[in-house]
Amino acid sequence: MFLNYFKDFSTKKIVKNNLSNVKHLASDSIIKTVGIIFDESYFYEREDLVKELIRKGIDEKNIKVLVFKDKIKKNEVFDYPVYSHKDLSWTGTVDKKEVKDFITEPFDLLINYYDTEKVALLLVSNLSKAGFKVGFASIDKRLNHFMIDTNAENYKVFMSELFKYLKILNKI
């Protein structure tokens, strides 16, 4: 228990230091590829959010999902990539192959779909090579290029606001 607390503290300090050195260089490209980071602790309508993206014109094969769970049971099987606190190292890196692949993917849009700050979520969002990052206003302002002020349970409002502003910014 104490070691997990110390590991979280150490990783959070690394992430906060990295966020203070972030240079926001948002791309001007049209959005074709989308990455989504979910916190499955609070939000379970992952499929509905992906269907909403498809309905808005994003091709299903261009949508990648990464899910964070607080605890992964030993015999649990998933049809999507999942990671937890156990996949973080003490030095602020991620050791799981699926997460490393997600981080290095150059998405046109990264949706950080979580509204509570957790070290594992902040780390992956910060390390992502996405050109344009979108998230909730309740998260550290330095992490995202664009923030929407709503809660995670109301995904339809989030998506309508997101696509309204993406259209204004000429990204779709």
Score class of each variant (00 low, 15 high):
L53T: 01
S41D: 10
F38P: 02
K51M: 07
K73C: 12
K51E: 15
K51W: 06
R55Q: 13
K56F: 15
S41I: 01
N62S: 12
K56S: 15
L66E: 12
K61G: 11
V67G: 04
K71A: 14
E52K: 02
F68N: 04
F38D: 00
G35R: 00
R55P: 08
N62W: 00
D48R: 03
I63N: 05
D70T: 06
K73R: 10
E47K: 14
V50M: 03
K74M: 10
K71E: 14
I54C: 09
R46H: 09
E40P: 06
K69Q: 10
F43K: 01
K69Y: 06
D39L: 03
V50C: 08
D48F: 00
K61Q: 15
E40N: 08
G35L: 04
K69E: 10
G57C: 03
Y42H: 11
G57Q: 06
I58C: 11
G57L: 11
K69I: 03
K56E: 15
I37L: 02
K64S: 15
D59G: 05
L66T: 12
E60W: 07
D39I: 03
K69V: 06
F43M: 00
I58L: 13
I72G: 05
K71H: 13
K64H: 15
D48S: 08
S41Q: 04
G57V: 10
L49M: 13
D39E: 10
Y44Q: 11
K69A: 00
F43L: 01
K74R: 14
F68V: 08
D48K: 04
